[in-house]
Amino acid sequence: MIPPLLNRALIAGLLAVGMVISPAGAQTTLDKVSFGTNWVAEAEHGGFFQAVADGTYRNYGLDVTIVPGGPNDNNRMLLIAGKLDFFMAANTLMSFDAVANNVPVVSVAAIFQKDPQVFLTHPELKVTKLEDLKPLTLFVSKEGITSYFQWLKSEYGFSEAKVKPYTFNPQPFLADRQSAMQGYVTSEPFAIEKSAGFKPGIILLADYGFNTYSTLIETRREIVDKKPDLVQRFVDASVIGWYHYLYGDNAAGNAMIKQLNPEMTDELLSYSVKKMKEFGIVDSGDTLHNGIGTMTDERAASFFDKMVRAHVVRPDIDFRRAYTLRFVNKGVGLDLRPKNQDK
């Protein structure tokens, strides 16, 4: 009989070399998985880093390497080329575009139920609803013009005549008090508070019908076809990681983020998590019953119709090929959600 202390040491040693012990006592090698994000390490990726740091992926038989993105990286191309197994797609528009261009990738889970895209306003304007933005100068990025702003034009009658280029520099917004600036609810408001000393007003586009999914887990179709068990384990473990990151002790995940991105601060990480919970970015709506990562045909069809009306996507594509519901809506991790969360 192996003494308890020695037994624990043996198990730890096996884990260190990529081995796990199955209930039957057999040794099983962890499946190596690579996952590319679309930006540098930050709280908006927190659940994935948490699942690595706290051993959740290992508990699901996975040895996961996260490959951070950045301004000069294209991890999606690495996925398509077979260099990565999974990729963090920005939103559903990327999925529709893949179908339109016959790119053999598919979304298998949607971590963000709400896109974090917002407009920030000067507090003295007392902007309380989307329509209040119409008279203002709007600082919008090139990517924003071709995506969500087309929806603002078709659904709400916004005009490009009021738009000025947003170059990810807040100074033009700060200098013009009759303006609004695009941003993410999890980061830009914090930056404005720190640099300008005021809390900006926030209009979250998702709350007005811009119902794209965001931060999707994407993989190649061949992996879905040939390794469905691997996909399921990666999705389930990622979901558990997100519950732990939002509602548990996320110190391990944040430590990993800061190690990879030294510019990240504890204050910003805490702010981002707070805003993700406050605005229901990850856990709201369908996730309350189906679990984090959920997707539905109805939601996908609704967003597709809006993007067709806005002339952002072609009406003839088979948008249902952009995703599969095979790996989500199973209620994984619901028991980890605090009972007092009612967002």
Rank of each mutant, 00 (worst) to 15 (best):
F158T: 00
L15C: 11
V64Q: 05
F198H: 07
A237H: 00
P165E: 12
D73W: 08
N169Q: 11
V328F: 03
G13N: 03
D31F: 12
Y271K: 08
Y323D: 06
G248W: 15
T167I: 04
L205T: 03
K227H: 08
T137K: 13
P104N: 02
K306G: 14
V239I: 15
P338Y: 11
F279C: 00
L246H: 06
I223W: 06
D225V: 03
V185T: 03
I192Q: 06
D207G: 12
D286P: 00
Q117N: 08
A180R: 04
K153P: 04
L84T: 00
G197W: 00
F303T: 02
F234E: 02
Y60I: 01
S147K: 14
G144S: 01
G61W: 09
G61Y: 09
P165R: 09
D31Y: 11
K164M: 08
G18V: 13
R326M: 09
E143I: 04
Y247Q: 05
F35G: 02
A251N: 11
K306N: 14
L14T: 04
N102F: 06
F210Q: 09
P71F: 07
D283P: 12
F139Y: 14
P104S: 08
G55L: 07
V231K: 01
K330C: 09
S147R: 11
P200T: 00
L133C: 11
L336K: 09
Y60E: 06
L62H: 10
A51H: 05
A9R: 09
D297T: 08
L62Q: 01
G25W: 12
L288Q: 15
F279D: 13
V282T: 10
A16V: 01
K194L: 14
A252I: 12
A161Y: 06
N254T: 00
V103W: 00
I21K: 15
K114W: 02
K164D: 12
G183I: 00
F168D: 15
D97H: 00
F168H: 01
Y60G: 02
T37Q: 02
D115R: 11
E193A: 07
I145H: 03
F304S: 01
T56H: 06
G46V: 06
